[in-house]
């Protein structure tokens, strides 16, 4: 006789398998992030500093090398590049 509980445990197992498959898939595709070594090469050669994720303001495009005052140097209307600028303090 099969218990409900058995079905449930099988179900859990199925989830673990699915999720494990996603984990493994992701782990295997970590290299695609770096373009199989292409990106570190370009970054190193050109001396790039930041991820190109959003380009709406310089203190957002180059998060790590802009100073705390740079958001205030735009014309007043451009201060808020919502939501990207609203959510963090530039260094």
């Amino acid at each position: 006789m099969i218990r409900h509980a058995t079905f449930f445990l099988l179900f859990c197992l199925l989830f673990v398998c699915f999720n494990a498959a996603l984990w493994i898939y992701s782990a295997k595709h970590q290299q695609t992030l770096a373009g199989d070594g292409l990106v570190p090469e370009i970054v190193g050669t050109l001396g790039l500093t930041d991820l190109c994720l959003a380009t709406d303001a310089r203190y957002i495009r180059h998060l790590s090398v802009s100073d705390p005052l740079s958001p205030y140097m735009n014309h007043p209307g451009a201060l808020e590049h919502f939501p990207s600028s609203a959510l963090y303090v530039p260094r």
Binding site: L38, D50, C52
Partner: peptide, 11 residues
């Protein structure tokens, strides 16, 4: 290359 666009897209 577009494989590097995470850092080079707007360059």
């Amino acid at each position: 290359s577009d494989r590097s666009s995470m850092v080079t897209a707007d360059l």
